[in-house]
Design a binder for these strands. Structure first.
Lengths: 106, 106
DNA sequence: CAATTATGCAACAAAATGGTTGCATGTTTA
DNA sequence: TAAACATGCAACCATTTTGTTGCATAATTG
């Protein structure tokens, strides 16, 4: 089953920006990721934690800093679910269109 | 640009269920959609409004009832964005792997 | 016409969210 | 070793979210 939690985690500008940065590799430690997000380091950390809890991101402490990595498993599921929704809908529209065209009473 | 708002709109169990029902055509009027969601009709209506504001859904009043339809435009954009994130990340992992393999110092 | 049905709208309340500041602690580095 | 750096954690606060109830109204239906 699909949990709304995945989308909820992506549904915040700060969190989405973090995901973006991780994906393109521009930064990968907590402090680095926290820069220029418009919020304090602790604020960013809280958002990062939301991503960790949603299993979209993993933390790997090493020495005094901790590396952040993206876990695309959930992301893939979320993407597939959206694609499925689109497909279902398009199929329905298509069926409806066909029905109207074939309707002898029209 | 991608707005977190799309994901935020999908990030609620009630709203996601509404989207699901719309996609497979099980119901399409406000009252119908509001049934068995675990919240009151007015509660569901508020969530539906969030989807309308996010342009994921459109309302078409007709007589005393109003039909609800899915607008997949935003959905497609959201899906593509997720796919792009995955691709970027996979590319980075691949490059990293290659770098390690080719490293003469290892 | 009198019910019933489908909706809308507003006031309210509890809980979740997003952010802050302050302070503590382990890790490097000069 | 002392300073600088990377983090963690807790207390607080304002706003947003999610949901409720109550009431009003237009459209159908018997």
């Amino acid at each position: 089953m699909i949990e709304a939690d995945i989308y909820k985690a992506l549904g915040d500008p700060v969190r989405l920006e973090i995901i973006r940065r991780l994906a393109n590799g521009s930064s990968n430690t907590i402090t680095e990721l926290s820069k220029n997000l418009g919020v304090s380091r602790q604020g960013a950390r809280k958002q990062l934690q939301v991503l960790v809890s949603a299993n979209l991101v993993r933390l790997l402490p090493k020495g005094r800093e901790t590396a952040v990595t993206l876990d695309t498993t959930k992301l893939k599921v979320a993407g597939l679910f959206i694609a499925k929704l689109e497909a279902q809908w398009d199929l329905r529209l298509h069926a409806l269109k066909k029905l109207v065209q074939d309707d002898p009473t029209s």
